[in-house]
Write a protein that binds this DNA or RNA. Structure first.
Length: 527
DNA sequence: TTAGGGTTAG
């Protein structure tokens, strides 16, 4: 059932204590000095309240610190002890510890109740381990609306929108009395899937049932913005007549920017002092829309409000200037950031990469990797770097970075990294090396590779006129791709055209026509 | 025990 369960036989109080202590020393150095302090006075229920209190006040480390002391002092803890501890584990994104706490609960028989299991569902979903969330959910004997909601929001959190809607349908079938939490998750799901009709239905349900309208109203405003109906979002905002809620107003401002309703956005912004979060979100909208002049106005608003030393805001500004082709502005901002994060470095590398300067992108990357920066590259950094190498044809550098990712930083390349690497090898005309890589991946993945890999291989074979391997890749692409993906048919068709197999080109075109698919037209920023 | 702002990089 759970990876931790085979360990249960080894979990004595001593070993768990040691594990928890190690976890603290590794991850919560600030608290390590205090772990041997005496347990605060109080009975178990008082201490349990204290655990919850730490969590509510935003101190998960405090919760875990106290839990460790409690565990050292007495082996008998209650389910009320574990629920806030699970919450703290979830917040601190430390799956190993969460699993060990689960094992301890199991050992003490404290994981049987609905509330305990709901906390486990939530924790596993926050770790991205949905299979375990579902397993726990299925084991709940008396499922209440909260346990359903926990799984529902877990699906949503992990990008499983369709599954979330399926679960909502199941709640209906099971006649679960839905709550505001349910509706909130469902309306967010509709926003993520951009499904207008279902979202409208949820809106109607909210209006009819007269639920709490501040939180739900914000989710509905956000939903209408996400589906491009910012006028509807405005109507909801006006009808709710809640002008004091900052989150709701910010949701509307961000929606206006993303939908290019700039006049309304700045009008709303003038009603109250904007905070960093809404400005950063608005800058992201400007980046997506490539609207530098609006981005500049937000830059001015940030200056007026004294936010320009905020790293997240500078990251947003850098990204916006970079995406709009203003590399000098991006670099000036980057150099001025006092405490650069991995996002700052990655944004700067990306700014050079998207503006075609692979050499400068690599220079910044190397600077980032030097000792003393206090920052380590992550998988996004490597994706940006590999992409820069691919675009600039920096083959040897790309190979070096791909190797470095795992060997030096212990980061396993994902599908996107392999796609970039195949692109790099393709630029070097090295289809032999690509094929060796593919064979290794097939061995490691039980011969199943994601479609994106086959697409990259096909493009490489097309570019290098590798007929035999290209045909193999083309067959795999057609097997793996969904019937709705028109661009894949065009890609395969172009490959057959490149190698002169015109009957296959015709076959692809026929398939495309029969399915009534049309490839989306390419668009330029300036047309 | 479960919900609101697509806060920033792919």
């Amino acid at each position: 059932m759970f990876a931790c369960l085979p360990l249960l036989g080894d979990i004595t109080r001593k070993s768990t204590n040691l594990l928890l202590k190690n976890v603290f020393v590794r991850n919560f150095v600030v608290h390590a000095d205090h772990v041997f302090e005496e347990l605060p006075q109080g009975d178990l229920s008082t201490l349990n309240s204290q655990l919850s209190s730490y969590l509510r006040r935003g101190s998960p480390n405090g919760t875990l610190d106290l839990f460790l002391k409690m565990h050292r002092a007495s082996p008998d803890l209650s389910s009320h002890t574990f629920t806030p501890v699970l919450g703290a584990c979830a917040l601190l994104s430390y799956p190993e510890m969460g699993r060990q706490v689960h094992a301890l609960m199991f050992k003490q028989g404290a994981e049987t109740g609905t509330i305990s299991k709901t906390a486990l569902i939530d924790m596993y979903s926050k770790y991205g381990q949905l299979v375990d969330s579902v397993t726990v959910f299925e084991s709940v004997e008396d499922k209440d609306v909260v346990s359903w909601n926990a799984l529902l929001s877990g699906f949503l959190r992990n990008g499983k929108g369709k599954e979330a809607l399926g679960l909502f349908a199941a709640m209906y079938r099971e006649k679960v009395e839905i709550s505001e939490f349910t509706l909130c998750s469902v309306v967010k799901t509709c926003a993520s899937l951009k499904i207008l009709q279902q979202g409208k239905q949820v809106h109607a349900m909210v209006v009819v049932t007269g639920r709490d309208l501040v939180v739900l109203g914000t989710a509905i405003i956000s939903f209408y913005s996400s589906v491009g109906l910012v006028t509807e979002a405005m109507k909801v905002y006006i009808s709710l007549n809640v002008h004091t809620d900052e989150v709701m107003l910010n949701s509307l401002i961000s929606g206006c920017i993303r939908n290019r309703n700039y006049r309304e956005a700045f009008l709303l912004m003038s009603r109250q002092r904007p905070n960093v979060r809404v400005l950063v979100s608005s800058l992201a909208g400007c980046s997506d829309n490539s609207d530098m002049w609006i981005g500049k106005q937000i830059h001015c608003a940030a200056l007026r409000n004294g936010f320009v030393s905020d790293t997240r805001l500078c990251n947003g500004l850098m990204d916006m200037y970079g995406k709009c082709g203003r590399i000098v502005q991006a670099r000036t901002l980057f150099r001025a950031i006092q405490s650069k994060t991995v996002v700052s470095w990655t944004s700067m590398i990306d700014a050079y990469a998207v503006n075609g300067d692979g050499v400068k992108a690599l220079q910044i990357f190397r600077e980032m990797c030097e000792e003393g920066t206090g920052v380590l590259p992550n998988s996004v950094t490597f994706l940006v770097v590999l992409s820069a190498c691919a675009h600039a044809g920096l083959v040897e550098e790309g190979k070096e970075c791909f190797g470095m990712m795992k060997e030096k930083y212990g980061l396993a390349p994902g599908t996107e990294h392999y796609v970039c690497f195949i692109d790099i090898l393709s630029k070097a005309g090295d289809t032999e090396e690509i094929w060796r890589l593919v064979e290794r991946m097939m061995v490691n993945n039980n011969r199943n590779l994601p479609c994106a890999i086959w697409v990259a291989v096909l493009s490489a074979c097309s570019l290098n006129m590798d007929v035999t391997r290209g045909e193999f890749a083309a067959r795999r692409v057609m097997e793996e791709t969904g019937p709705e993906n028109a661009s894949i048919y065009v890609l395969v068709s172009n490959f057959y055209a490149a190698i002169g197999k015109w009957h296959m080109v015709e076959e692809m075109r026929e398939k495309l026509k029969k399915k009534g698919l049309v490839k989306a037209a390419g668009r330029s920023l300036f047309i």
